[in-house]
Design a protein around this nucleic acid. Structure first.
Lengths: 226, 226
DNA sequence: CGACACTTTGACGCACTTCAAAGGGGGTGG
DNA sequence: CCACCCCCTTTGAAGTGCGTCAAAGTGTCG
């Protein structure tokens, strides 16, 4: 099987270190073997915060967000997941975040106990599970670096990250709403909107529609991404 | 909610979920067996950003910070490590952060290749390495939750986290400087200082000296920690 | 075509930063 | 043992980037 993993045409990466897809053939095969395909409509909850983490998921199509609601109602997005990504692994015995379908999604679901039993027998699977967790850790660390920056830097960084992950030339289709972006970046929806508008004015990007973004000047975005 | 009631001896925990120490006897034993003890004086670099990640470390005594300098000179602290913690595992093939001794420290150092070879043979060690990485991930996720809050909430959350980790009744000795705290919380040193002063005025804490903090009213701190 | 959800734009306020200077406190040398 | 110095911390005053509140677009699906 030619895995979806490698991409020779990858664009020059952002200055934050790359988080390359983990080549995880053995794991992917195991998940495909053992797992059931499930579908969730847009906005459905895949699992909830504090639920026992009984399953792990491999996203087949669509996009997923993980989030956490704070006591005062503020919401933080943990991560966005794209096809091929594995999620639901981030927790201890309980999910620390909830996961929701941003678009209609298909996922492969596997019982955690089953995959862990396999890992106990198959060191390659164990190694890849660990690698997936380390990649997740890197993503979260990159996320922290975004959160200490200015609004312009956060939005520019977000766009570069998305462009890299969806690997679509220069025009990217954002599956998530402005509110999702705002809650990912620790900003308000108004600030995200204003910042995008201002990036458009400075010709760094174009916005053919609110969910479509054309990166016109990556160098400028990378400069903002300080 | 009757949450987090599990440990009667533990002080009531913060509302962010606990990140309990991972019981890792097999791993600790292996590290003790295979490792060399090294000492670093205060402020010494243990490893640098972008260096190959050849070793992993178990902190024996003292405190360590990991940090990353951004292009414009801003510094972000990744995590603080206390005795018993394992660090240096957070990266891919290269360290994403540098690690520095906050105080004089002693660490046990083990070649990564050696511990990975052991993990390939000993599933218990492999499992525990994965568990350490997952705990690290949880910490970083909690860190993100701090970064989206107000200054008061960040500082209160930081104090509660430190109190929990050093497990010293109500008076804690902070090994790190105000600058370290500021760079951990994404604030300026002035804001950290002002916030501590204001928490003292409101009788939530006392500051016998700049590095010593007495938690006088955890409930108030937890309330701020929204 | 009309209703509803999402996005954009505007005006204003405030929390935190920035710039500046005044305290400590602890270690060293006289 | 005291005095001086250096570094860290605290306090003050003023500026500003982002949040808040409010209202006007814009697209989409019945």
């Amino acid at each position: 099987m030619l895995a979806h993993t490698t991409n020779p045409a990858a664009p020059a990466s952002r200055n934050a270190r790359m988080v390359p897809p983990v080549p995880s053939q053995a794991l992917d095969d195991a998940l495909a073997m053992m797992g059931a395909v499930m579908s969730y409509p847009r906005n459905a909850e895949i699992y909830g915060e504090n639920e026992p983490a009984e399953y792990i998921y491999r996203l087949v199509s669509g996009s997923v967000r993980t989030s956490k609601i704070l006591d005062d109602g503020r919401r933080q997005i943990g991560e966005f997941y794209m096809p091929g990504d594995i999620f639901g692994l981030e927790a201890g015995r309980e999910h620390a975040f909830s996961a929701e379908a941003i678009t209609d999604v298909k996922v492969i679901v596997v019982k955690r106990s089953a995959i862990e039993a396999l890992a106990a027998r198959d060191n390659e699977v164990a190694r890849q599970l660990w690698a997936v967790t380390r990649r997740e850790l890197q993503r979260v660390q990159d996320h922290i670096l975004l959160l200490i920056k200015t609004a312009q830097e956060r939005v520019a960084g977000f766009l570069l990250e998305m462009a890299e992950r969806v690997k679509a030339s220069n025009e990217i289709e954002l599956p998530m709403s402005r509110q999702d972006i705002a809650d990912y970046l620790g900003l308000t929806i108004e600030t995200v909107s204003r910042t995008l508008t201002s990036l458009e004015s400075s010709a760094a990007i174009a916005l053919p529609s609110s969910r479509r973004v054309v990166l016109r000047n990556r160098a400028a975005l990378r400069r903002l991404n300080a």
